[in-house]
């Protein structure tokens, strides 16, 4: 068995007394796009956020179980959260570029992590990230324009560029296309395809067809539990669990 990039074992998440995630175990690999699917409120976003400790910002959240990145427990006291979040980047559901210029949006991360020495290095990183996000040709002449002046799809690609700029190893995407129109969505899916080899990608989506198109491994969540986890083709053509079959055939959700 190849070494997994990230492993989660028996992870449970509590908000106060309420249990939101119940004993989930999943692997994330470098060469794969892993999709989390399931009906609304089933906990897929919550679980995604445990992977880069974004749940730390919620005071009542408590995580049990073990999540490892390259073999290191990310919840251990000697794991630097700031560094973790640079290595495990996140793209959110609603595009949220900083109210700064396009250049500044992408340059911010490398700057605070000290990844670029001279301005020319920073320029290079910005160009590389924007190219990889498929945005360079559209904005190369207006890097000083505000990031918020772009269209929805462009803003999301800008957010992806921003996440890429700090050279992550894993990119988490929380329903990245749900706020976008079909054409922008197609562009993003194409982008995910291109990024696949370089980063481990985990994508949460409520659009089953998108999961089928984009991912190699799929995990189906329901009411906080992991119902089924396996190769995408297997899940969609021959699901083992009854609930999975019901969900995929559109009986509910």
């Amino acid at each position: 068995m190849t070494n997994h990039k990230m492993t989660a074992r028996d992870v449970s998440v509590y908000y106060g007394q309420k249990r939101a995630i119940d004993n989930v175990s999943i692997d994330v690999d470098m060469d794969n796009v892993t999709a989390f699917i399931g009906p609304s409120g089933c906990g897929k976003s919550t679980f995604l956020r445990t992977l880069n400790r974004m749940n730390d910002t919620v005071a009542s959240a408590r995580v049990e179980g073990k999540i490892e990145l390259d073999g290191h427990d990310i919840y251990s006291p000697d794991m630097d959260v700031v560094q973790l979040r640079a290595r495990v980047g996140m793209v959110f559901q609603k595009p949220n570029p900083f109210p700064k210029s396009i250049y500044e949006n992408v340059a911010y991360g490398p700057r605070i992590h000290g990844l670029a020495g001279a301005k020319s290095d920073l320029d290079q990183i910005v160009e590389k990230s924007l190219r990889r996000a498929g945005l360079w040709d559209e904005v190369k002449d207006r890097l000083t324009d505000s990031g918020t002046a772009l269209s929805g799809g462009q803003q999301q690609r800008l957010c992806i560029a921003r996440a890429i700029a700090v050279d992550p190893e894993v990119i988490l995407m929380d329903e990245p296309c749900s706020a976008l129109d079909p054409i922008a969505t197609a562009k993003i899916e194409e982008l995910i395809h291109e990024l696949r080899g370089r980063y481990a990608i985990v994508i949460v989506t409520h659009n089953m067809q998108q999961a089928a198109r984009v991912s190699q491994r799929t995990a189906f969540f329901h009411l906080g539990t992991l119902v089924e986890y396996g190769d995408t083709s297997a899940i969609f053509t021959n699901p083992r669990e009854e609930r999975t079959k019901d969900y995929i055939t559109g009986r509910y959700g």
């Binding site: 910002t57 979040r85 640079a86 793209v91 959110f92 609603k94 949220n96 911010y108 605070i112 996440a163």
Partner: peptide
């Protein structure tokens, strides 16, 4: 909160989130 999430997401420390993003806004 989306601005804070975005900043936290790329690895800004809480102080950096406050002074680079929240305070200017």
């Amino acid at each position: 909160p989306s601005i804070r999430d975005a900043a936290l997401g790329i690895g800004a420390s809480p102080v950096q989130v406050v002074f680079h993003h929240v305070l200017p806004l």
